[in-house]
Design a protein around this nucleic acid. Structure first.
Lengths: 243, 243
DNA sequence: CGATAGTGATGAATGGTATTTATTAGCGCT
DNA sequence: AGCGCTAATAAATACCATTCATCACTATCG
């Protein structure tokens, strides 16, 4: 006869929401510390006070767990930013704000940012995922700002808003890779100013060649071309211009 | 007595260089087809006409094999580009050339580009690796162009060359991620023009001299924008221009 | 109040894959 | 002809994600 008390296995029964949030909290810890590949389900289970098999009751697999963890972080971040953003006026300030808050997020949560860039975004099913939608909403704020800036005459009418989006977010990512690998540090405010200014003015000196009238006329032409197009009049054949 | 001929194991002896290049060729194929994680050593060995264990005679592990494969590709690419680049004159053209050739590489070898971006660059030992040095040489051409442009008075003196580097390469990467995931296509020449122009001029209108006409035109543009808005027309697709 | 169905939780398999190791085969050298 | 050196092999090992058969708690019903 087996010694009952010694064999009896311990079971800790909890409401599902609690279990799920425990597991997600543990998973976040481990993913942040070890990265996706080196994170062990065993380790996550241990820290969540649960056995490996239990994790699979709530999450289909390791990757789904990762996605849920990053989603949770991203949603929280979006909520925090959104209200502050609403108060900022002027296209330079708005662009600067978006860049600054993004840099701040990377600076605060480098490991989670990395997971987003390295593990989530390259996945073939990324487009179509919830995180894709969240990220889209996040970056579209910049697209909207650029569109508004063009409409109000603050920004060059011929700029592509989506290209500006890629320019800004791409630049931020590229410039923070060293930090994300754990090399050195950066100052979000300082970097935000530098990027905003560069994007705003570009590289070219002074800009307008020969006559200052040149660009002024070109802009008028652009404006009238839009009106023509809008009115359905001879839309094509905009006069080519030299910058 | 065992049937000698049946038991005798086949051994195919070859000079090491040949074996190494066979293995690397097979590895390149498999990594390109499957990505790093889903590439199997077994599969690579099979295609190289070799048994798994043999791979470990020449490469310490799977990751080193990956690094060697990507290094080989990158070195070849650098050689091809370098001579052409030497012939290009003028900062706009040089910047455009660098952007164009980089886009072309991504367009030609999306899978290898992905491996570089996703697997190699984020690794903690990337800085200090040979690929880091290669990539540094590659991107520094742009830094040098910007420095030269500043020295010659073509570009704004206060721009940070390294920031321009991050702006350009970051933008390219961000804009090509969808393509790298296998979604759609892009035209390197067209994209190169768009990026080069945007980087050159930035977003801001005219800027510098604040001619008296400036504010007048801005007001006219605002007026037309209002007209457009009133007419319920989306001002997408403004007149395309080339500089 | 006691039996029992339903379900959360368990821990021991299973399966796949990188890496190691012990053994064998071919080649050059004397 | 034998001997040693190294390429090459095939089997063994180790590590993990994932699955599965079983158990234990709780609430419901007779």
């Amino acid at each position: 006869m087996p010694p009952r008390t010694a064999l009896k296995r311990q079971v800790n029964r909890l409401p599902p929401e609690r279990r799920i949030s425990d597991i997600m909290a543990a998973a976040k810890e481990v993913f942040v510390e070890k990265g996706y590949n080196d994170a062990l389900i065993t380790d996550i289970a241990l820290r969540a006070g649960v056995v490996e098999g239990s994790i699979y009751r709530f999450f289909a697999n390791k990757r789904e767990l990762l996605v849920k963890v990053v989603e949770h972080w991203f949603e929280e971040m979006l909520r925090d930013d959104a209200e502050q953003f609403a108060a900022v006026r002027g296209s330079w300030n708005q662009i600067r704000f978006i860049i600054y808050t993004h840099l701040t997020s990377i600076h605060r949560d480098p490991a989670l940012s990395r997971l987003m860039f390295q593990e989530i975004r390259p996945a073939p099913d990324y487009r179509g995922s919830h995180l894709f939608e969240l990220n889209r909403a996040y970056t579209n704020r910049l697209v909207d700002v650029v569109k508004a800036g063009i409409a109000s005459g603050e920004l060059r009418p011929e700029t592509s808003p989506s290209l500006v989006r890629d320019l800004v977010f791409g630049c931020i990512e590229h410039r923070t890779w060293a930090f994300l690998r754990g090399e050195g540090d950066f100052d979000p405010a300082e970097m935000a100013d530098a990027i905003t200014n560069l994007v705003h003015h570009g590289l070219a000196l002074g800009g307008e060649p020969a006559s200052p009238m040149e660009s002024v006329v070109a802009r008028l032409e652009t404006a009238t071309a839009r009106l023509e197009a809008a009115a359905g009049i001879a839309p094509e054949k905009p006069s080519p211009r030299r910058s």
